[in-house]
Design a binder for these strands. Sequence first.
DNA 1: TCAATGATGGGCT
DNA 2: GCCCATCATTGAC
Length: 169
Amino acid sequence: MLVFKQKEGFLSARIVETEAYLGSQDPASHAYRGVTPRNRVMFGSPGRSYVYFTYGNHHCLNVVTEEEGTPGAVLIRAVEPISGIEMMTKRRGQDKLEALTNGPGKLTQAFGITREHSGIDLTSGPFYMAEENSKKWIPIRATKRIGITQAVDLPFRFFWLGNKFVSVT
DNA sequence: TCAATGATGGGCT
DNA sequence: GCCCATCATTGAC
């Protein structure tokens, strides 16, 4: 679960689609060519957010995964809204539930996540991730990553097959 | 339903 | 100066 307690309201959502990015072995990764001011949190301690601005319009949220000194992150590609749907709808200018957070740029807009939220420890609040209290396990499928031009064949895109909105292709 | 396209601005070669 | 881990809109079918 992705959770963000804000003064405007309590937001939470189930993470249903992700993509993994490595470091020096992955040409599609921001960390491929070494440390820069933008990507430096990817080289830091795990469990922190890495948020970047792209295409002149959008922010994308990642979680740093590897131990300090080794770059690696997981891009959050889609979530299913649980709480704070009214706030998400307002921010997105979009009232179709399926279109609220079914893309990496959409979910950051719905949650109000920007570069200011990069480098934050996600293991404690108010901006954090938590395990869902669910009894039911539904499998995950891996496919090729999308929206990239390098290393296009690595099967690092992961879907939760119980999701309602994102089609597995 | 799907492919093509313009908007838009920061990051890096 | 070119690239880009995107989105909403447009127009063809």
